[in-house]
């Protein structure tokens, strides 16, 4: 009897230890695709809420992804209002869009570049166009740099990022970002449904981008509005984690970790920043630092994962930006869930 028990236990253990060879995961990733967007100028009106560096962010991200084997489709609006597609200046300018409907779904005053600009329609069409191309073992990465907003007038608050033609002038001459022509998590979730691979990665360098993260079981002890100082695990973290476990995957908003891994520059309730000192959005700058030369390869296995890239960018912000910008601190966030994806 004793011998039989010992033999059975050893057999179970041996079977588990040897089971690596049972699974065939040949290779790392078959093909890698990226859609990269940036909006520096939203309007030719010099009083508009234009930015300085999203086109630099998009250009640099495109380059680092291409150098690591990605097939990149890109659209960005530069600091002169010109639209670029796939890294080439079309010399087609945007206009000064003025809303003609209360929800911003229509406008006048667009420019010659509107048809190829990184608008919501073009972003969703780009995703749709990849549906027949991206295979089940491929990677699809979407990057956006520009404005992002939280609509706190609804419950729960909703966050979205602002492509071109979502920040519009109204008849009074004021600029607003309108939800309808903006991109919500639901818009991405719907578009992603046609993409066969589960390896989808969304990187957002926008304010309030943490709202795109729909963590279902995890409690994030970095608050949605980081105010500096140490964030620690406390009784609230335990309580939230248990509550999430009891409710079993009921995140009301955001992309499920099974829909996409989201790396956001900012928390749901906070802004993030760009600075001439770095020539980029702050998060993108440190992300690029990690991706260029694979410095984010924390475990030195020759590959960079989404989590490693996040960790590198977060460490850079914590070490260099937050201590020196007490009024403008922010923290990147990342999706939960058990799975991490290889970037390259």
């Amino acid at each position: 009897m004793r011998r039989a028990i010992r033999r059975a236990a050893l057999a179970v253990l041996a079977a588990l230890l040897c089971s690596c060879s049972m699974f065939d995961y040949s290779g790392i990733v078959t093909h890698k695709y990226a859609l990269v967007y940036g909006v520096t100028w939203y309007t030719m009106d010099t009083n508009g809420p234009n930015l300085q560096f999203p086109h630099m962010d998009a250009s640099a991200i495109s380059a680092v992804l291409q150098s690591n084997g990605y097939t990149v489709t890109s659209r960005w609006v530069d600091g002169a209002g010109d639209v670029w597609t796939d890294g080439t200046d079309t010399h087609l300018p945007i206009g000064t869009p003025v809303a003609t409907s209360p929800d911003g779904s229509s406008y006048i005053g667009g420019g010659a570049g509107d048809g190829v600009a990184p608008s919501k329609a073009n972003i969703l069409v780009d995703i749709q166009n990849l549906a027949g191309t991206v295979g089940p073992n491929d990677v699809l990465l979407i990057y956006f740099s520009g404005h992002g907003t939280q609509d706190a007038s609804v419950t729960p608050p909703r966050e979205y990022f602002d492509p071109y033609a979502s920040v519009l002038k109204d008849s009074s001459g004021n600029f607003y970002d309108y939800p309808v022509p903006s991109v919500l998590d639901n818009d991405l979730a719907t578009a992603f449904a046609a993409i066969k691979t589960p390896r989808k990665i969304v990187i957002l360098d926008t304010c309030n981008s943490g709202g795109f993260i729909g963590n279902q079981l995890e409690a994030d002890w970095t608050p949605p509005a980081y105010l500096g100082g140490a964030s620690l695990v406390g009784p609230e973290t335990l309580s939230q984690a248990i509550s999430n476990y009891a409710s079993m995957q009921s995140s009301p908003t955001g992309l499920s970790p099974y829909g996409a891994q989201v790396l956001s520059a900012a928390g749901r309730d906070e802004s993030c920043y760009e600075t001439p000192t770095l020539g980029h959005g702050v998060m993108t700058y440190y992300l690029l630092q990690g991706l260029q030369g694979s410095r984010a390869d924390i475990n030195h296995d020759g590959h960079v994962t989404v989590l490693e890239a996040f960790s590198y960018a977060k460490a850079g912000i914590d070490a260099n930006w937050n201590p020196n910008n007490s009024g403008s601190t922010f923290e990147p966030h990342i999706s939960g869930g058990p799975v991490d994806f290889v970037l390259f």
Partner: peptide, 20 residues
């Protein structure tokens, strides 16, 4: 109550166990 490496994401689970 673990948290994922390199994150501030904590999660909870129950674990039935047997032991020889």
């Amino acid at each position: 109550l673990p948290s994922y490496w390199y994150t501030t994401l904590a999660f909870f689970y129950l674990e039935p166990r047997a032991q020889a």
